Amino acid sequence: MAKKIIRVAGVAIIDQKENKVLAGKRNADRLVGGMWEFPGGKIEKGETPQEAAKRELEEEFHDEVKIGPQLGKTVSYEYDFGIVELTVFFAKLLTHNFDLIAHSKVEWLSADQVANLKWVPADAPLVKELAKTSFKDINF
């Protein structure tokens, strides 16, 4: 039987002044718990990936974001539970609540620091892409 395809949208929240990106550490009780990721979640029927990314941030952090361009290409990764198709967008925070629902902590990291974390497998190829990006050049 074919595995379920799970479409997911995430955000690489950046601070252009500090040239840093926000990484979230998944709660230990969740799938791939304890690993780092770009915050986000499943794309619901009728939603664009950008709409899903914005909604997920509001649900998970109680924060509003402005969605920017896509980071790299959509990644397809096969887990035991299904195939995740992950699309990540650059974003900037409009509010700063950080009411963590799905994450045990968040950290602001420079592009070269992100490679030092243990990332969720679907996110890992985008971390490499992120390291080559100058955050100051992203237009919103």
Rank of each mutant, 00 (worst) to 15 (best):
G82N: 10
L57T: 11
E59P: 01
A102N: 14
G82Y: 07
F81E: 14
T133S: 09
K66D: 07
L71V: 02
L100G: 07
D99T: 12
E56S: 09
I43D: 04
K136D: 13
E129T: 14
I43T: 01
L109G: 07
E47V: 00
V120K: 13
E59W: 08
V106F: 06
K92L: 10
Q113I: 02
F90A: 02
F89R: 09
K136T: 13
N116C: 07
A122G: 07
W119C: 08
A111S: 12
D112Q: 06
K118N: 15
W108E: 02
K54E: 15
E64M: 13
W108H: 01
E56Y: 05
L57M: 15
V65Q: 05
F98H: 15
L86G: 03
S110Q: 13
P121C: 03
G46T: 03
P121T: 00
L57C: 14
T48N: 04
D123F: 08
Q113E: 15
F89A: 01
S76F: 08
V75G: 01
K73S: 13
K45P: 07
V65M: 03
A131D: 07
L100A: 11
K92H: 04
S76D: 11
S134I: 12
D137A: 02
E78F: 06
A52L: 04
D123N: 13
D137C: 03
G72C: 05
F81P: 05
A115M: 09
K128I: 09
A124R: 10
A91V: 05
E107A: 14
A131M: 15
L126P: 04
Y77S: 12
K105A: 14
K136V: 12
D137L: 12
F140I: 02
V88R: 03
T74S: 12
W108Y: 01
V88D: 08
K92I: 13
F81A: 12
G72V: 10
D137N: 14
E60S: 07
V84N: 01
N116Y: 10
V65P: 12
F90Y: 11
A111I: 11
S76P: 07
F98N: 06
N139A: 09
L100Y: 06
D112R: 09
G46S: 05
W119L: 02
E51D: 03
E58L: 15
Y77C: 14
G82V: 00
Q50K: 12
F81L: 12
T133D: 05
D112K: 06
A53G: 04
E129M: 09
F89D: 11
G72N: 08
A111C: 06
A124L: 10
T133N: 07
